[in-house]
């Protein structure tokens, strides 16, 4: 797959001296949904803001569709739409007027059909002539999404799209996102909710303290997530594993006091547990207790972030 955004050695130090990004390298593939996952203050917004031209980078290079975001900013920015984290709308304008404005500043001629489709997709059609000040918070968020889509961008940035958003809007938004993806739009979203990344993304990048710690296909990450461990607390410590157990992924831990069996919970091989326990009994190993543990994405994440 070709990459549509290339971020090379990107760093950002704010005027305050605070280094918000350290040497970020990331390629975003055309047509994918990538989630940038990280705790508050990790640098997600900073990263997106640099790519979109709102914050000046301190070092490094970004290209969008092959165009440098500084030198060829026009060509680069024409492709993007941004829904920022903070709610910011013109209070006294109508919904239609702000959509028209957004399309205009991105250099496109008015298109009533697209305007209508956008209004409808976001359930804003009834409100199209309402002043934005009269809309609820959720409606305003829809307006911001609509503005970002008004010029038919090829790449959409959603910065913390569901923070403080009601269930219905969340559902609507994911529907819109899915349709956009089907039509080939690349979507970059940031979130600090793991389940959100899990639900939507094809790939997940983890950011912490300004560093991109990991970028992985979600499925690969889920595989790790799917790994389960069965831990047997042994009555007597064991120094070596009996040969009869070599067929299983077993490991001795805790000075031989625990026997750990790692298996994939997604696979039916888990039925093997019965056989394993038989084999252990046959080997003469006794245990006083047992437990199972699952690596959640949360756990993977916490481990990564602790390092």
């Amino acid at each position: 797959m070709t990459s549509i955004i290339k971020i090379e050695n990107l760093s950002k130090t704010y005027a305050s001296g605070f280094q918000a990004l350290r040497n970020i390298n990331l390629e975003i593939r055309e047509g994918e949904i990538i989630a940038l996952l990280g705790p508050n203050g990790a640098g997600k917004t900073t990263l997106i803001s640099i790519v979109c031209g709102i914050v000046n980078p301190s070092g490094g290079r970004v290209t969008i569709g092959g165009y440098d975001i500084v030198k060829d900013y026009r060509a680069a920015r024409t492709m993007i739409g941004l829904v920022p984290q903070e709610l910011a709308t013109d209070a006294f304008e109508t919904v239609t007027a702000t959509f028209a404005f957004s399309r205009g500043v991105f250099g496109k001629k008015a298109d009533p059909a697209h305007l209508e489709a956008t209004l409808k997709a976001l359930s804003l059609y009834d409100k199209k002539d309402s002043k934005i000040i009269t809309l609820s918070g959720g409606m305003k968020r829809r307006v911001m999404i609509g503005k970002a889509l008004s010029h038919e961008p090829r790449i959409l940035f959603l910065d913390e799209p569901t923070a403080g958003v009601d269930v219905e809007l969340r559902k609507d938004m994911w529907n819109v996102v899915r349709k956009l993806k089907e039509s080939g739009v690349t979507i970059i979203l940031t979130t600090h909710y793991i389940d959100e990344a899990e639900e939507m993304a094809d790939r997940i990048g983890v950011i912490n303290k300004g560093e991109l710690i990991l970028v992985e296909d979600k499925d690969v990450l889920m595989q790790k997530l799917g790994e389960k461990r069965l831990i047997l607390h042994l009555t007597k410590p064991v120094t070596d594993l009996p040969a009869g157990l070599s067929a299983y992924r077993l490991e001795l831990q805790n000075q031989g006091k625990s026997l750990v069996y790692t298996y994939d919970a997604n696979q039916s091989e888990s039925a093997d547990i019965a056989h394993l326990l038989d084999a252990i009994a046959a080997a003469g190993i006794q245990f006083k207790d047992l437990e199972t543990r699952q690596n959640s994405l949360e756990e993977i994440f916490v481990n990564l972030v602790k390092k």
Binding site: C52, G53, I54, Y73, R74, A75, A76, R77, T78, I80, L82, P84, E86, A88, T89, D90, A91, S102, V105, F106, G107, K147
Partner: peptide
């Protein structure tokens, strides 16, 4: 627009 934050749109647009 700077005050209410809508300036982001102009800054991210292909405008000189």
């Amino acid at each position: 627009p700077r005050f209410i934050g809508t300036i982001y749109e102009i800054l991210s647009a292909p405008v000189s």
